[in-house]
Simulated scan of single mutants.
Amino acid sequence: MNKCCETSLIGRDLSRFDPMAIDQLDATARLEGMGKVVGLPDLHAGNGIAVGAAFWSPDRIWPHLVGSDIGCGMALWETSLPVRKFRVSQVDRRLQGLDDPWGGAMEAALSAAGLPANLASPSLGTIGGGNHFVEFQRIEDVLDTDRFAALNVKADRVWMMVHSGSRGLGQAILNEQLARTGKSGLMASEPEAKAYLLEHDQAVAWAVLNRRIIAQRFMDAIGVSGSGILDIVHNSVTPYDSGWLHRKGAAPADCGLVVIPGSRGDFSYLVEPVPDFAHKSLVSLAHGAGRKWSRNDAHARLSRRYKAADLQRTKLASHVICEDRRLIFEEAPEAYKDIAGIIADLEAAGLIRAIARLRPLLSYKTRRHD
């Protein structure tokens, strides 16, 4: 690692980190003006930039470290549906047309979110591809009974997690920025950086709105109501410690409760950051299990062993809706690390208190055929 930049890895066994991800993290640490870099337990190699990491600079902003899906994150909802009334086959039948454009009052929704009308898009209210999803869940275990009780939520309700971002908006912002300035860092005091931050903040707000609309569409489809528990952003740049904190696939440890999902065939965890130790990780946490295999590797390995239909049911007996035959292999549970190990790493570092563990019931990716 670059000795000019403070770097650290959060994990009990550092030998388990992917060497390619470490190389990418090291390359980022060598950027001129970089002050501190942290690799989180879910660290894995990305498209030139390690995912599952946080980067801090006293005076510079790098749009490419945030990436193309600005504002991507997780929302967690408690629905009004009792678990005892959840029927996978019934829910499956009702989840129709949700890849199609949202038919709601788009300009009014944008205005209510403080966004201009020119950000209207057919993508608003849709999940998108890649690792994005909506998942219905139930509480498997309450791990901290006092803290769970204080949240005033119900353990016998179906919960819903929404993972999506700013769709094509973030990609367009990054592409335009790279065309103007490349991957050079922007001095935060310069007009170019301020212009990027304005667009960035709009993309974050758009992504939050997108998750809210997605959640409402899914609840409407199955005839239930719900209340939002949290919404957190994984890809962003924000002011921190008199400088600028970039998160690339990292959950915030300074915004309240956090949900950390496993793969679609594994548990997810509702956790609370421990403020006393947040500085160790640049007030950031793992955002999920983290990939073990690349998308191409996952497809190559698993398509020889399974049929697509085999992956529609997981080891936890949950159901998967994914009619994209390539995506169902790329996003298979085997392609991801063990979420229990990730949580244990965060607990060992003193970064979180686990509140509850959630079991998947049904994961929705897409009904669009390839």
Rank of each mutant, 00 (worst) to 15 (best):
G67T: 10
V258Y: 01
R291P: 02
T238E: 12
Y364C: 03
A221N: 11
P252C: 06
S236W: 02
W159M: 00
A155N: 03
P333N: 12
A120F: 00
G104R: 14
Y240C: 01
E190R: 09
V320S: 06
V258C: 11
G168H: 14
I342D: 08
V320I: 13
L209M: 07
R30W: 12
K183S: 14
P101E: 10
Q202T: 12
L311F: 14
G46Q: 10
D276H: 11
R167M: 15
G185A: 07
D338C: 10
L31A: 07
G290S: 03
K154M: 01
E347H: 02
L358R: 06
D201S: 15
A348I: 02
D42N: 07
C322T: 10
G256E: 01
F86M: 07
K3T: 15
W159Q: 01
I214A: 08
I355V: 11
S242M: 06
L174H: 02
H200I: 08
A335H: 02
S15P: 08
S263T: 11
P63Q: 01
S121D: 15
I61S: 08
G170H: 06
L25G: 13
I222N: 03
N131K: 07
S123W: 13
A298V: 09
S15K: 15
H369F: 15
R211W: 06
L43T: 10
P116L: 12
M74T: 04
S294V: 05
A354K: 06
W56V: 04
A193I: 06
T238H: 05
K194D: 10
